[in-house]
Nucleic acid binder design. Structure first.
Length: 336
DNA sequence: CCTTCGTTCCGCCATG
DNA sequence: CACATGGCGGAACGAA
């Protein structure tokens, strides 16, 4: 359920809406049912008025609540909305804010003691008004498990895809990313949880290098190899990665490898060690170490939980019955 | 889990 | 002068 309040920023509404409504599983079913809820059934959104089919009551039945930003981030939120959010939080409903929607969560007290992010221009204000919140303006989004926050409007895409990945796995998320033509950096660059600095701007000069790494990540690559292909010194390569991608070349490479491993774990029955080798890790133990560091669970557990429920974690979503074959997984077969 | 050893990364500085 | 590159060296890291 996406929460619409007066003054809603339309892109904050539209981005998650698109991602979740367009997401498809391997069997073409749509796993998410998206509703837009407004307290009074209608909200003022600049040049237009949004009439919604559902009201606040929908929050009580939501698995996930998305809270977009508003024109005036610090405008007081209607008490009924705050109550509904707190009740949902108490119910362990997953709640994610987009951009300055973080102010609404903070106002409801849901960010107390947590790390959070918001639009960079509003970060100072958020930190000032809510001292109990640890504001980090240098990340695309922060995943606290139940409560998530994301940076500026475009980061809503990253956050939404992250949720898709959490719910249904990397292959499904990659498929959705392709559908909405998400640039490679952002789709591939976000590691699993908290982390990562501002993404490389789309069309950055690193893009060809990133693509090349993506295509060759299964080979044994060294820094020097990458630098040679990029036609620059290792020093410059490191510097450019730092400036434009917010990581280092090798960190990027291992993230790429882990992501591919996730897809193979989901889509095949290959032994973990074989997958480790296939995605470019020399030793299985190295793979295990990187995998659990990035994903949070072991490779075997990841596969087991994915198999068991059709996706990664909790949340009550009736899913493809576990007897359904995974052979039809289209996403995993067509990584660019 | 520990140790060893090659690799990576980044500050500093010279150069174009 | 402003800016980007890249060599150097050591500390930190990561693969066996």
């Amino acid at each position: 359920v996406i929460l619409a309040l007066d003054g809603i920023v339309l892109s904050d509404l539209a981005n998650p809406l698109d991602v979740f409504t367009r997401t498809r599983l391997a069997d073409e079913t749509a796993p998410y049912r998206v509703r837009v809820a407004a307290p009074g059934g209608a909200v003022d959104a600049h040049e237009l008025t949004l009439h919604t089919r559902v009201r606040l009551g929908a929050l009580a039945r939501a698995d996930t609540i998305i809270v977009p930003g508003r024109d005036d981030p610090v405008a007081p939120t209607p008490p009924a909305v705050l109550r509904a959010l707190r009740a949902a939080a108490a119910r362990r409903t997953r709640i994610a804010s987009i951009c300055v929607g973080a102010f609404v969560l903070a106002e409801a007290g849901l960010l107390d003691g947590l790390r959070a992010t918001t639009h960079w221009a509003a970060a100072d204000e958020l930190a000032r008004r809510y001292p109990n919140v640890t504001v980090d303006a240098n990340v695309l989004f922060v995943d606290n498990g139940q409560i998530l926050t994301s940076a500026g409007a475009a980061a809503a895409l990253d956050l939404s895809l992250h949720l898709v990945r959490r719910d249904y796995g990397a292959a499904v998320a990659a498929d959705t990313a392709r559908t909405i033509v998400m640039p490679l950096e952002r789709a591939g660059g976000q590691a699993q949880f908290i982390k990562h600095v501002d993404p490389a701007p789309a069309g950055s000069s690193l893009e060809p290098v990133l693509r090349w790494i993506d295509a060759h990540c299964h080979e044994p690559l060294t820094l020097a190899d990458i630098a040679r292909h990029a036609a620059m010194s290792t020093r410059t390569l490191n510097r450019r990665f730092h400036d434009e991608a917010g990581t280092t070349p090798i960190a990027w490479l291992t993230t790429t490898r882990v992501r591919r491993a996730q897809q193979l774990l989901e889509a095949t029955h290959d032994p973990v060690d074989a997958i480790a080798h296939a995605v470019g890790f020399n030793s299985p133990s190295t793979f295990r170490q990187h995998f659990s560091a990035a994903v949070g669970t072991s490779a075997a557990q990841y596969r087991a939980s994915f198999r068991a429920t059709g996706r990664g974690r909790d949340r009550r979503v009736r899913q493809r019955d576990s007897s359904a074959p995974f052979g039809g997984f289209s996403a995993a077969t067509s990584i660019p």
